Simulated scan of single mutants.
Amino acid sequence: MYVNIFLFVSVPGSVGFLLQPFGAILSAPFVDHFGRKYTSFMVNIPHVVAWILMYFASTVTMLFAANALLGFGTGLMEAPLNAYVGEITEPSLRGMLCTSTQMFYSAGVLLMFFLGKIMNWREAALVSLAAPVVSMVFIILVPETPVWLLSRGREKEALKSLCYLRGWTTPDNVRDEFDQLTVYCKKLECCAICCKTDDDEIIDCEHKKANVFKRIYLKFRYVMIAKETLRPFVLMIMYFLFISMTGLTPIRPNMINICDAFGMADGGKNIAVNRIIIFTSF
């Protein structure tokens, strides 16, 4: 009996996680094409549609679709959030602000379990709708990142954006940082293979004229397996492996149903909230 219960509750809870990698794959091209600001605005749209769909859901299919949109939208959010925070902040604050996203993610999970305890799921979906809507409003008020604007040749807008991000200051006060960003963006336009092999900053090189398979091979050889790439890659793999082995991610969507299925005296919702509080505190 318990096997059947686990199979039943695991399917809807896993739909969002199955769609999340597909959103993450599309996230990077969206960020490069539309910019960090507008992509951060657009990735909230799947969440808005999902919460509205969940509130008005009358069939199981609508619930599955809403959960799939939530997972897809979460995957889309990964690149623009980190890119925006990383490009607008000063080095002394960058690490703290980038890691704070995980803290607020855990706080959001705790809030969702708490809402599920004090109200029904339709009301919880309606309250949750406020998060992406408020996020979209605040995103409208912030500028695009100077790095992306410089990569598109919009230097005046990039300087104006940097002045805004550094406290509505004047261009003279951010001139040194702006010049450094300009040099950095010019280096990004260089051929990655040339920079790895010859330290050559020529944009037009023979590698861009080579066939696609040769370019892929050379980039993999000189960029992907370079120590500058492998070190952070290994650290991220170790981090995600540790998070997955804790068991929180796969058990979280089904925690309440599993606790109720075993007939725990304290109730599934109370146990779930207490477990999330303990995990968040660490």
Rank of each mutant, 00 (worst) to 15 (best):
F34G: 05
M96W: 12
A107F: 14
G16W: 02
G35M: 10
M112A: 07
S92W: 09
A107L: 07
A66Y: 11
R122F: 08
M112L: 07
V15W: 01
T99S: 15
V31L: 09
G16T: 03
Y38L: 13
A107R: 03
P80D: 01
M112F: 09
S92L: 09
F113P: 05
G95M: 09
N82G: 10
T59D: 05
A79W: 04
L115Y: 11
A28D: 07
L126S: 02
T101G: 12
G16I: 08
A66L: 06
P46Y: 03
M119P: 12
A125R: 08
Y55E: 11
E90K: 11
R122D: 07
A57L: 02
A24C: 09
R122T: 02
Y84V: 05
L69F: 12
G71V: 06
G75K: 00
A28W: 10
P91L: 00
V48Y: 09
P29G: 00
G16L: 06
M42I: 04
E78L: 14
F72K: 12
L19C: 04
M77G: 12
F22P: 14
V31I: 10
A83F: 02
A68I: 09
C98I: 13
T59W: 02
P91G: 05
L126W: 00
V49D: 11
M54T: 02
W51S: 14
F22C: 06
F41Y: 11
R122Q: 08
F22Q: 15
S27A: 15
F30L: 11
A50E: 10
V48T: 11
I25G: 06
Y38V: 08
L81T: 02
P29A: 04
F113I: 03
Q102N: 04
L53E: 06
F22N: 13
Y55T: 02
L81W: 03
V48S: 06
G23H: 14
I25C: 10
L111K: 02
C98F: 13
L69T: 01
P80H: 00
S128R: 00
V49Q: 09
M103H: 15
A107S: 06
P80N: 00
V15G: 10
T39I: 00
A124K: 05
L111T: 03
N82S: 09
M77N: 09
F41L: 08
D32V: 06
L18E: 06
A125L: 15
A50R: 00
A65E: 00
H47Y: 14
G71P: 05
E123K: 01
M119R: 13
L76Y: 10
M77L: 14
E78Y: 14
W51C: 09
L69V: 03
M42S: 07
L18G: 07
L19H: 12
Y38D: 04
I25P: 11
A79D: 11
G86D: 04
L70R: 05
K117F: 14
L70N: 13
L93I: 10
L69Q: 01
G16F: 08
P91A: 00
F72P: 12
K37Y: 12
